[in-house]
Design a binder for these strands. Structure first.
Lengths: 149, 149
DNA sequence: CTCCAATAGTACGATATCGAACTAAAATAA
DNA sequence: TTATTTTAGTTCGATATCGTACTATTGGAG
């Protein structure tokens, strides 16, 4: 394959990623109350799976959003009582975000509705396209991530 | 594989897609002037490859963003003289967006800088992860897209 | 210890995003 | 033809996003 075709394919890869992200965010946000965002939902899921909590900076790194966006996002989640934000005993500059029981329940309920909504797509597509591409996506994400500095 | 593991893997798929989208948008936006967005850039590319132009609605569908976002995005591109917005001779309700020569040049310049910036990642990763996952992504995008209605 | 560079998070302001309601034109029905 | 419904795009208002500049704290160098 010619180098320019390769560049082209990489470009299309990123375009598809953008469109899928858009489609899935829209689908998810239709289930979420108010103006809650797919990113907020992703952060909540991350925290529910980590009962020990994480600092805002760890979350910024995990989701690759700016610190300043994370401040805003976390305070919104805190306003809805889905997470708590406490002082970090190890570092007075820092905080620890943890999910609340309400947050965990909320996540579970949304995930269930989302699964129902995705069921037709999954039965049409089968599981393979997801299973086959996931390792490649992880590879690409890690490469982009480590190169950023 | 258990069904719940499959669900889990689908969930991770969407998470990876979100993070890659975030990483690549940030990387691209670092090259773009002012507060120009990755989506705006994507739309410009789409129009450059289609000299006959497209209507705002076609663009909304292609990128899966709301019409109302497209109005805003297109007027921003028009303000920068990267595209033109003309009346659609076939339908007085509608318009046609086309790239300008300045838009095409601008796109080319940004693409080149982006390619340079991606070169280290590509030489580390090779081309295969992109090539292998693209057909799967297209499949998933089409399924999500057709199911939306 | 004292200084200073690096780090965690925030305030602020500029834009982007997008849902709801709207206008105008086109397509369809009656 | 006239009335109704559908469609393309915009306006408006609310919120999200993020770059810049800032404060407080930490940790290392001398």
């Amino acid at each position: 394959m010619k180098p320019e075709d390769e560049t082209n394919e990489v470009y299309r890869f990123f375009t598809e990623v953008g469109i899928i992200n858009q489609l899935i965010s829209t689908k998810l946000e239709a289930f979420l109350p108010g103006r809650m965002t797919a990113t907020q939902f992703g952060i909540l899921g991350h925290l529910v799976r980590r009962p020990e909590g994480e600092t805002p900076l760890q979350l910024s790194n995990a989701f690759q959003v700016p610190k300043t966006s994370m401040t805003h996002t976390l305070s919104s989640l805190e306003n809805h009582a889905l997470i708590t934000l406490e002082a970090n005993p190890n570092d007075k500059r820092s905080k620890i975000a943890r999910s609340t029981p309400k947050g965990a329940e909320f996540l579970k309920a949304c995930m269930e509705r989302m699964s129902e909504s995705l069921a037709p797509v999954l039965s049409e597509l089968g599981f393979d396209p997801f299973h086959n591409s996931l390792p490649n996506l992880t590879l690409i994400r890690e490469a982009l991530d480590s190169e950023r500095d």
